[in-house]
Write a protein that binds this DNA or RNA. Structure first.
Lengths: 250, 250
DNA sequence: AAGTGGTCTAGACCACAGC
DNA sequence: CTGTGGTCTAGACCACTTC
């Protein structure tokens, strides 16, 4: 607990450009900088935040990548309309974080929680040895009394020790980042549409649906080790993925 | 034609950091820097390319965002396995560019090409006036003799004049960027799954399929004007979207 | 101790908008 | 012409990994 607070303190002090990004993001979200207006210039911001222009530019670049602003040379940084671009909750976000943001009342039901050896398929997909044991966690997400999503997580035990059912009922990402102090860094995601399996029909409310949206996630730590594979199976009517993309991400 | 070549020449000369990114990308793709090896250090690269370290870092950051490398502090930049992370063709890419990259033999059939007034729905979605006329282009993408994708494009005429059927048979993006010299900058994308419409059944080979993947694209120029709305309707069995995401894009 | 990437700075020159 | 963002530089200090 103490170490957590310490960590948060350090995080607050560290990374000037990221703090500035967060402040500007909040200011845009709460309407201090409304859509279709121009932010203060980079030089002005550098003065305001008592920093150099390059540091301001790092903060602005994050805003730009996330779709908050569009830079117009010779003019300034235009605030984009978040309503129109509708919260691109892309990136690498857990269900818990998403549900919190959306203000949904959601229930998580643990359908399976066990420690086992990986199947040969999983060994190949995660490049594991036979001996490596894994946590196998199946969770059903219920929204408005309907079973909408089935999350099948496979987590390498040696990297994420001490997992419990209680943790899975809340947020595995929270546990990894806040308790174990490990840094989740990147993921490869793959979206496909498949026929529902017997398992899908048993665990989800699929009356009248003939397909299921499958999102496979390969999730890596900062040191580039693959620690988790997640297969997320969504009822198609409730699935919606919004992304913001730049043509030349620079 | 002459202006085009001039422009390309300028583009080749400009942007040192982007050129370095492209060289490194090519070097990784062609195996000069194999997976699980470490790139030359930032200082070494700065010397090699006769530039400053910050410029090298900009190039490396693009590689990192696109999933080519993972930076490890104290160690170096690790080359990630592209096979494992399988060409994340995300971002903002046209069908033509994608088909070219994959080496697919694809055919594009123009089902509709006309200049018209926007429907009231489209007026709202694209924030147009009644008077603004638009190009309405429906294209079916055929792969291996099967009609897989229906692309419905709505393009604001005043921003993209002179469109022809011939251009649509090739690449509209090419025309906009190379002929009109306009810069496509960013897009909001939205993925959903829907019931096929009568139109889908008429224009695509959908025997035995009960759903369709809908990708809506709102595409903007560099000056933040919305010039194109595209609805891309995919047969579910052939749809696959791969993305690379970083948790804190910095 | 040496080398690595991560951050930050102060200054320079450029291309572009707008007056 | 002035102010804007876009690029590039040279140098500094830090935290981390490795020996």
């Amino acid at each position: 607990m103490v170490t957590n607070n310490l960590k948060m303190l350090v995080n607050c002090v560290l990374n000037k450009y990221y703090m500035i990004f967060e402040e500007l993001e909040a200011a845009i979200r709460n309407g201090k900088y409304p859509p279709d207006t121009i932010l203060p210039s980079e030089n002005e911001l550098a003065e305001q935040y008592n920093t150099s222009r390059e540091t301001i530019r790092k903060a602005l670049n994050i805003l730009s990548q996330k779709g908050y602003i569009q830079k117009l040379r010779g003019k300034g940084s235009l605030v984009l309309d978040l309503e129109k671009l509708q919260f691109p909750i892309s990136g690498l976000v857990s269900f818990k974080e998403l549900a919190d943001k959306m203000g949904h009342s959601s229930v998580t039901i643990i359908e399976r929680f066990l420690n086992t050896q990986p199947s040969s398929l999983l060994q190949k997909e995660m490049q594991l040895k036979k001996e490596d044991s894994i946590w196998e966690v199946f969770r059903v997400r219920e929204i408005n009394q309907e079973r909408i999503i089935l999350d099948k997580d496979y987590i390498v035990q040696k990297y994420v020790p001490g997992l419990t059912e209680e943790i899975c009922r809340n947020s595995i990402f929270d546990y990894i980042e806040k308790e174990l102090n490990l840094k989740i860094s990147f993921a490869k995601k793959e979206f496909t549409v498949e026929e529902p399996t017997e398992e899908d029909y048993n665990l989800l409310d699929l009356e009248g649906f003939h397909s299921i949206v499958v999102v496979k996630n390969y999730i890596y730590f900062e040191n580039a080790t693959l620690f988790q594979f997640t297969e997320s199976r969504h009822r198609p009517d409730k699935f919606r993925f919004v992304d913001f993309a730049r043509r030349n991400e620079a």
